[in-house]
């Protein structure tokens, strides 16, 4: 399952792994805002250094994060084509027989690409260093003020955590069903259009049937153990901020402030 690196938790120990999930979510939020503000390459260099330091602190190999980029390459090429076709401002960069390429088209694309890259790096850092359950616990805490306006923070968090919990299971089931069908001569890579369609049907139907079965089983199991939506529950693990957490949020705030100031004054 080497192609599913993005979004996978990597069980090692690091400064980032030990942070409170709420800290990571808040900082990610602040950093993503910061990433979308600047219009200056020097500021992006600064942000890149910040992001790379976070990656370094998380002890996740850069190579693993870059694997997450591969599926994005197609999208980036697509963006470039759209921009080249539509943006006609700036100075003329290149004159081909059938099309003129303007500087703004290229720079716009580059900005988008750099923003996306930085964002994906940070997001994969979050998911790689935070267990899915901790992540939802963090989300639940951050959403809980909304309970005042009857927003079902706990239920939403439970739904997210169930969904996250079942992603690996569903991937596993998918692999298993694919293998069963390969044993029956289905070729998922080659074949004509109608053969491909049949291959997909032979995968999708059992997958749905398994998913529904799992859902019913889970609902029964939860009920059998007395789960009542909305009821007050205690926690095994209580979240607590430490000094590093405050430091981290502070640094993120400083970065965001600097970026905003740069946009105003540079």
């Amino acid at each position: 399952m080497n192609n599913l690196v993005f979004g996978k938790y990597i069980p090692i120990d690091s400064t980032i792994h030990r942070l409170d999930p709420r800290t990571k979510i808040i900082s990610l939020f602040l950093m993503i805002i910061s990433i979308f503000i600047p219009k200056n390459w020097w500021v992006y260099l600064f942000l890149a250094i910040v992001v790379l330091s976070v990656v370094f602190l998380s002890r996740i190999r850069l190579g693993m994060i870059f694997k997450a980029f591969k599926p994005m390459i197609f999208m980036m090429v697509f963006l470039l084509v759209i921009n080249v076709l539509s943006v006609k401002t700036g100075y003329l960069l290149l004159h081909l027989s059938f099309i003129d390429i303007y500087s703004d088209a290229v720079f716009n694309t580059l900005f988008i690409v750099v923003r996306l890259l930085l964002m994906v790096m940070l997001t994969s850092c979050l998911t790689a260093t935070t267990k899915p359950l901790d992540l939802t616990l963090g989300i639940e805490h951050l959403l809980s003020p909304l309970k005042i306006i009857h927003f079902p923070a706990h239920e939403v968090a439970m739904m997210i955590s169930i969904a996250l919990r079942f992603i690996p299971t569903i991937i596993e089931e998918t692999m298993r069903i694919m293998n069963s069908q390969k044993s029956r001569g289905v070729d998922f890579e080659e074949g004509s259009m109608s053969e491909k369609l049949m291959a997909i049907v032979s995968l999708i139907v059992p997958l749905f049937s398994v998913a529904f079965e799992r859902a019913y089983e889970l609902a029964d199991a939860m009920e059998a153990r007395g789960y009542i939506p909305g009821a007050e529950r205690t926690r095994l693990r209580v979240l607590k901020y430490h000094f590093v957490d405050y430091l981290f949020i502070f640094v993120s705030l400083v970065v965001m402030t600097l970026v905003i100031l740069s946009r105003i004054y540079l």
Partner: peptide
Amino acid sequence: FQFAEYQLFEESILKDAAFGPKNF
């Protein structure tokens, strides 16, 4: 496979049993 029942998908039992030979 272990828990082979998860490979069933055709609309009828007979069609499902004939799926393999058809692919080959």
